[in-house]
Amino acid sequence: MHELSICMSLLDQVERIAKEHRAERVERILLRIGPLSGVEAPLLMNAYPLAAAGTIAEHAQLDIEPASVRVHCVDCGAESPATPNRLLCASCSSYHTKLISGDEMLLASLEMSLPEDASEPL
């Protein structure tokens, strides 16, 4: 179950950022995850409460923004949508493509409650 270890790693980062901002609570965590990242969003959702218990982000809302699979064709220059196991150019069928999006596994943003006198970071 690597989703749990990914959650732990995520929470390490969240706690660090929250501390830097002297936040009282983390309210919302936004992730961006693509189907080619190897991470399953539903499994991550399930693992989160377990990993977050007792942390500053225990009650945070976890939102996961899916990323779509898109490729850029090296041969004809077209940009087109693709699927995880068919990364071919939609206009010329070439497999000389580069992935533009779809493998993201990112912590995109955090929303935190700060104490009144510390609304600006260090």
């Binding site: 980062q13 830097e20 901002h21 596994m105 912590l107 943003s109 955090l110 929303e111 970071p121």
Partner: peptide
């Protein structure tokens, strides 16, 4: 990203919002 000109802003309900953009496996 979180300091200096870190994209630090406020949401409508007054929370601090930080754009982070790091990999989930940053430590690794």
């Amino acid at each position: 990203l979180v300091r200096g000109d870190g994209k630090h802003s406020k949401t409508t309900d007054g929370r601090a919002a930080v754009e982070v953009l790091t990999g989930l496996l940053d430590e690794n």
